[in-house]
Design a protein around this nucleic acid. Sequence first.
RNA 1: GGUCCCAUCGUCUAGGGGCCUAGGACACCACCCUCUCAAGGUGGAGACACGGGUUCAAAUCCCGUUGGGACUACCA
Length: 474
Amino acid sequence: MTGVRCRFAPAPSGSLHVGNVRSALFSWLWARRNDGTFILRVEDTDASRVTEEAFRGVLEDLRWLGLDWDEGPEVGGAHGPYRQSERLGIYDEMVGRLLTDGAAYRCYCTEEELEERRAAARARGEPPGYDGRCRRLTDAERAAFEAEGRSSVVRFAMPEHEWVLHDLVKGEVRWAASDLRDFVLQRSDGSPVFLLAVAVDDMLMEVTHVVRGDDLLASAPRNIAVIAALGGTAPAYAHLPQVLGPDRKPLSKRHGSTSVEAFREQGFLPEALVNHLALLGWSPGEDREIVPRQEMIERFDLARVSSNPAAFDVEKLTWINTQYLQGLDDDELAARSVHLFAAAGLGVDPAMLRRAMPLVRERVRTLRDVVDLLRFLFSDDVAPNDRAAALIAGAPAGYLKEAAAALDALPTWDAATIGTALDELATGAGLNRTKGWQPVRAAVTGSNVSPPLPESMELLGRERCLGRIRAAAA
RNA sequence: GGUCCCAUCGUCUAGGGGCCUAGGACACCACCCUCUCAAGGUGGAGACACGGGUUCAAAUCCCGUUGGGACUACCA
């Protein structure tokens, strides 16, 4: 008896969008939860649109998210190959079997004819699917079409009875026989259609649980029928509700930056993204929100997955991200930020970056915030932003010049000493700490917002601080 | 149009007949803390779509209405 086998079968369209990732995650969680096998299968039969780069993007995203696969591209497995483009021969063979068994038939209807009859059926208020005409062709008629040189597709002869699916999250779903019409398995150019490939692969790969979006719910009975016709055992199905965008429309390219890549570039941690996605349609119970991976695996249960759609909430993701960010130690936080500094065109001194971590940890929501907050350390271009310029302009006459002199005279350069000096300076000018420190902050960092000032200045070094303050004073 | 799916605070959810004058989280508001910004703390506002049933009792079960969504291809 084989254990639980789950799969994720994305079309390689570049970076995965988070709705797909949620499906991948739940499938992965179910496999892990049951000490089962997680399979990655790439649905790349639509060769025209698939690039090697898009394929790599999918693998990269999954790895970044920590959704490791036991069978699939680059890791192999006993049920390969795992790219549908490499399985074309298998689909051919299966179509042949279906044809000889009479479970499928050649259909010679042209697109125009189909369209016409569809429109007519619809006008009569009947289900618009294929009417089954070629299913009943006589040998003579078939021969005539062949002689005529008509091209043909292979259609599946859908058994005419009611279909019942016991979906793991939707419960019992029924379809009347009349609603499930004969569908195309193989196009006239010989290429397999999704419905065929999925069924064949799930069967051959011995998948036990198909966890996917509920936009595929209606294709379940077709998948099952094909597998049955092939003599296989159909897997159990769990159709997940859609992930919605802020406008409550299914999340799609229309919502712009919803790709894993985009979130990574915006400075989100994979564990935060995973955590948020896990909470969409599933709840760990006990009012838990932050759920570490291991615990997520232990608590996950398809039976507890909700069947109503959930909207992806960047605000909540951001909050979750800060929770994880605060849990990172200095080395990790620094290491995870480095690539974003590079992306921002900033070269970093690793030691200095590392020392700055305690200053920013509790004031960043994304890794990009780390870059924004620390930019002044790694770039001497600190032209003040508008608010900073206003602070500098609003300082008492000669205030910054005085500050430079006082700081220059300090016996030692450490946060405590700097802080005391700044306070004395402020009191001398009749200002409170807030008012007194802000102009200095603006001069040193170019911004009205920064990590704690004395500590920041210690890190920056006396010379660079003085240079900036004098420049601002001028 | 047909078939199917879905319906608790703005959002994610807990809830699976009495424990609910509906709990938690994000966001929001106020206050506290405070060198800016955050983080943190305290408090606040905020929901069972509607209408019928069933039942001693319904957010929870059933039906309908309304509203969303999916599918309805030689797309996946």
